[in-house]
Computed example of a mutant assay.
Amino acid sequence: MKMPASSASEASKHHSVSTLLDWTLLVLPGLIWGASFLFIAEGLESLPPNGVTFTRLLIGFLTLSVFPGVRKPVARSDWGGVALLGVIWMALPLSMFPFAEQSVSSALTGMLNGATPLLVAAVASLLARRLPGRGVLIGLAVGFAGTILVAAPTLGSGSSQATGVLLILIALVCYGFSVNLARPLQQRNGALPVIWRALGFATLLTAPLGAPALHNAHWTPASLFSMVALGAFGTAIAYVLLAVAAGRIGATRASATTFLIPAVALILGVVVRGERVALLSLCGGAVSFGGAILIRRASLLPAKH
């Protein structure tokens, strides 16, 4: 039986809207997180690093608080895991980036973040206590070689830049562990309740040093806008969008949004702040991106028995 023309048209229109929504949910988090390194750099014009971290966490927590779904209960047995997530996913790594960006450009910081999928895959294999498959191993080798190339030009630029790169790498290692910890917590309790509580814990944890810094801030319009955008979008809305995307198109496909971060950070750093990036770092970013693509393709292949 043939579908009426009007019904076929409606179905086609619904499919187009659904596809557009999926792409929007996939692209927006990457754009937001790519811009976050520019926002951090602008925020540092008015706040010290501890103030930037506390302010973004506070605004992010308050923003997420308007979503009713965040108040769903979390299993008592998972409270410790949520608190740990607040430390290693939020308080610690989000403190590393502002300190790092005092000596490292926002563009380079964002490019180094391209190594996040590599560390997530490496930590997952470590926690599983087994070597990943051949395809993932090749991707890890290529990706980490690219990360070394990205960071290499900073090694001859003084100890402050090298320290900044080290802080970024510490933050990325935290991300590698936290993503693997967050997955089972979110599966059992839902993404929003876990993220909201972790944000609340991280906000309290950073308040002793961050609140006085916020009180003594000297704002400019650009830094104020940047901190509001960093907190509301980069520390709250992007997490919500990614959670919705994972529910609609699957966690593996949704994680592809992280591939946008280095490119967005690079473009904004160069265009908005006039930052310069060494050619070797650009080549390394491309190699690291290639490694992440190899890991993703290997992870999507069916397991061989």
Rank of each mutant, 00 (worst) to 15 (best):
A198V: 06
V272T: 00
S255H: 04
W79M: 15
A254C: 04
V87S: 04
H14A: 15
V87I: 07
R296F: 06
M227K: 14
G86L: 11
A238D: 15
S65G: 12
T24E: 03
G156T: 08
N50F: 13
T53C: 13
P29T: 01
A232R: 06
V228F: 14
N216L: 15
T116P: 05
F54Y: 09
L62Q: 12
H15T: 12
F259T: 04
A191I: 11
I148L: 12
A191T: 11
A141M: 14
I32P: 01
P117L: 12
A251L: 02
L204M: 14
L155R: 10
V120N: 06
P184I: 04
S157K: 14
T257L: 13
A152E: 07
H218V: 08
A198I: 05
V277E: 00
G110Y: 05
S6M: 08
L149G: 00
T109V: 09
V87L: 07
A152Q: 05
S77R: 11
L47P: 07
G176E: 01
T220G: 05
M90C: 14
I168M: 08
A191L: 08
S9T: 15
A171C: 11
L169I: 15
A191H: 10
R134Q: 12
G43E: 02
V272E: 02
A107Y: 08
R276T: 03
G176I: 00
V179C: 10
R273T: 07
T147R: 07
A222C: 10
V194N: 06
F67C: 15
L126P: 08
R253I: 15
L224C: 11
S7F: 02
Y239M: 06
C283M: 11
N189P: 11
N113Y: 09
G247K: 14
L20S: 10
G34V: 05
L242D: 14
Y175A: 11
A303F: 07
G110F: 04
V173H: 07
V27I: 11
K72A: 14
G114Q: 00
F289T: 01
G51F: 00
